[in-house]
Simulated scan of single mutants.
Amino acid sequence: MEAGGGGGGGEEEQVMSEVHLGCPPHFSGLHVSRFSFSSRPLGTSGNNDGESSELVVATSTSSSGGSLDAFAVDEDGDLVLDRRKRRNKYVRNDHHLVTIQHRVTSSLKTVGLQVWKAALLLADFVLHKSFTSSDFDGVTAIEMGAGTGLVGLALARVARRIFVTDIGTDILDNCLANVHMNSGTLKFDIAKVCVRELDWKMSWPPPVGTHDPDSSQYLWSASEIEEAEKATVLFTADVIYSDELTDLFFDTVNKLMSSGAKKVLYLALEKRYNFSLDELDVVANGYAHFRSFFAAQDEHGDPIDSDGPSLMGKQINLAEVPQYIREYDRGKDLEMWKIMYFPDRKLH
């Protein structure tokens, strides 16, 4: 997701996702990383990849788009040579690759050009549901603040239609490139993935595009807005890091979830801690503000508070979400929530 707000003069501060620590540092162009998974979770019988891999396979591309040679490096930065492995003819080849073009570092405004751990967690959740149930088969869904589009790509394997949304031409162009790169290997029809701009400052519905050839290819048509309102599932990852952005996000969520079909939102985030001078303690910035937008549910699905926001959320036990994607370490600061809309409750 492109972060809101404008900066002053001077060079913008660069940030880096932990997911990209194995990539060559100080590269200003785009990289392509490949994330691997199979239909069996890591560590289960039949999956020999029980440990998270530190290997990042990447193809460097220049800022102008010129492709360089493909290479692989291990955790020490040493070159890894491909060796042909003998396959057991009785073992089904069940491994898949998701190819993601991204930046290694970015400004805060363009963090959507990187892959973040919460997106990998949410992709694991989508993969788990697709391998063990029919919950997402044939759904119409919306990914909000999609960034590189990783979650939407995982869902495109089984969904009927997925609207992959974010803001900013650079981020949307990169997201669309990822859709094209993965349609063949993940075996989904490009036509079912619709990359569109959704500016939370303008809330919902977004403006309708015109037939002007100079208008953005990421503008919505009236029929697409109508179709999106029939979506039953929303997904978002790692968009909680600014109170202002959280306000805009939940304003859009409330309007989306109150329009058309009944919807459920799956939200993943990573709690990031900083020392607060006001509280003289280490705190997760914006987390309490995020939690104020929905009432929590108990283990039976009943609201803990009798009155409050029209949104209710239940935290998902991550032990029930096996890890499928090898190339990341979840750590202890990831969370995932299932959030539902109840119109008879008071709006926040």
Results as ranks from 00 to 15, higher is better:
217 Q>W: 07
276 S>W: 05
61 T>A: 08
340 M>L: 09
57 V>R: 05
37 F>M: 06
67 S>F: 11
15 V>R: 06
258 S>A: 13
207 P>I: 00
10 G>V: 14
216 S>I: 02
68 L>P: 00
168 G>A: 09
127 L>N: 00
196 R>N: 07
244 E>S: 12
307 D>C: 04
199 D>K: 11
200 W>H: 04
337 W>M: 09
28 S>W: 06
123 A>W: 06
127 L>Q: 01
211 H>C: 13
300 H>Q: 13
219 L>Y: 06
283 V>G: 10
212 D>R: 10
5 G>A: 12
304 I>F: 04
269 L>W: 10
51 E>K: 15
148 T>D: 14
13 E>T: 09
80 V>S: 09
3 A>S: 15
185 T>M: 11
164 V>T: 10
91 V>Q: 06
160 R>V: 04
26 H>F: 14
171 I>C: 14
32 V>P: 01
124 D>L: 11
280 L>F: 12
241 Y>M: 02
264 V>E: 14
143 E>G: 07
34 R>T: 15
248 L>A: 13
290 F>W: 07
2 E>M: 05
312 M>N: 01
187 K>W: 09
211 H>K: 13
62 S>T: 15
131 F>P: 00
232 T>N: 04
110 T>P: 01
194 C>R: 09
276 S>D: 02
39 S>P: 07
288 A>P: 00
332 K>R: 12
267 L>A: 08
102 H>R: 01
17 S>G: 01
75 E>D: 14
312 M>Q: 14
254 N>E: 14
326 R>E: 12
28 S>H: 12
107 S>L: 04
97 L>Q: 13
135 D>K: 14
39 S>F: 12
344 D>W: 15
119 A>E: 09
164 V>A: 08
3 A>R: 11
211 H>D: 15
11 E>P: 02
124 D>R: 06
317 N>H: 05
202 M>L: 14
58 A>Q: 06
143 E>H: 12
323 Q>M: 02
169 T>L: 12
205 P>W: 01
86 R>G: 04
102 H>S: 02
283 V>C: 12
27 F>I: 10
255 K>R: 13
334 L>Q: 06
316 I>Y: 03
108 L>D: 02
65 G>Q: 06
321 V>C: 03
6 G>I: 10
310 S>F: 01
193 V>W: 00
18 E>H: 05
131 F>S: 04
119 A>S: 15
47 N>M: 05
167 I>M: 13
132 T>W: 09
263 K>Q: 04
130 S>Q: 05
64 S>R: 12
214 D>K: 14
299 E>N: 13
93 N>M: 14
140 T>M: 08
183 S>V: 09
196 R>W: 05
157 R>H: 00
213 P>Y: 07
138 G>D: 07
257 M>H: 11
151 V>Q: 08
177 A>E: 15
129 K>I: 08
88 N>P: 06
16 M>K: 14
21 L>W: 09
105 T>Q: 13
322 P>H: 08
15 V>A: 06
63 S>L: 12
218 Y>G: 04
182 N>H: 03
210 T>C: 12
98 V>Y: 02
306 S>C: 06
137 D>K: 07
223 S>N: 14
135 D>S: 15
101 Q>W: 10
191 A>K: 11
341 Y>G: 00
77 G>Q: 09
70 A>G: 03
231 A>I: 00
232 T>R: 10
85 K>W: 07
27 F>L: 08
121 L>K: 03
129 K>G: 02
11 E>N: 11
125 F>K: 13
304 I>L: 15
